[in-house]
Design a protein around this nucleic acid. Structure first.
Lengths: 104, 104
DNA sequence: CTGTATCCCTAGGGATACTG
DNA sequence: CAGTATCCCTAGGGATACAG
């Protein structure tokens, strides 16, 4: 079951996308700006996969210029604890205050 | 930071390996038996990466036939909460009692 | 602005055979 | 038993250009 959950949030950018969407709804361009390094193709790609997995909603506003909003579904929000656990661990064990790997 | 943590447990078999080692020390062949589908190459490979990341210890017993034990380091044990969070989420949202994705 | 469509390239994995 | 050593193959990603 661990693997199954990992499968949903694996993908180079999914963790980051989800983290940003935890803060609230964002449009495509806003996500891009928050994620330097991601290409349009990849961002679209990962968003589509997250959508297919029922973790995010995609709302298209019929406007010119176009506007598309992305937000977490209930299922997506339920991942908050998981994401928090991952982030917290990272901050403690990889971040600034990380202990040296081992005193061997 | 989420990505950094994910990087450590990503890899097709790492999550499973860590889960098994949470139960206690296991030797190579025991891990293999608990993981049908993994090849020697992959198991060795993933174990080496986990070792390099300081998550597991590898203890060689000079015997004939050879015996190698794998166990979690302190750092590895500290991942328990993360792994639990992942497993729990999976059981609830993907397992038997999972809700349908959405009533659309 | 929000995407597709191509092309390309590498790392991750699998199958299989061999070894100390 | 516990690994290497090869070979091969695909999916995941990146760059770039084009489109509604």
């Amino acid at each position: 079951m661990v693997e199954a959950t990992l499968a949903l949030i694996d993908g180079k950018w999914k963790g980051v996308i989800l983290s940003h969407l935890l803060e609230g709804t964002l449009r495509f361009s806003e996500l891009r700006r928050r994620m330097p390094g991601v290409t349009q193709r990849m961002l679209t790609n990962q968003l589509r996969e997250l959508e297919a997995d029922g973790l995010i909603d995609r709302t298209i506003h019929a406007q010119v210029p176009p506007r598309v909003d992305y937000s977490l579904t209930e299922r997506g929000h339920s991942l908050r604890e998981v994401l928090d656990a991952l982030r917290l661990w990272g901050e403690i064990h990889i971040g600034l205050f990380a202990q040296p790997k081992a005193a061997a």
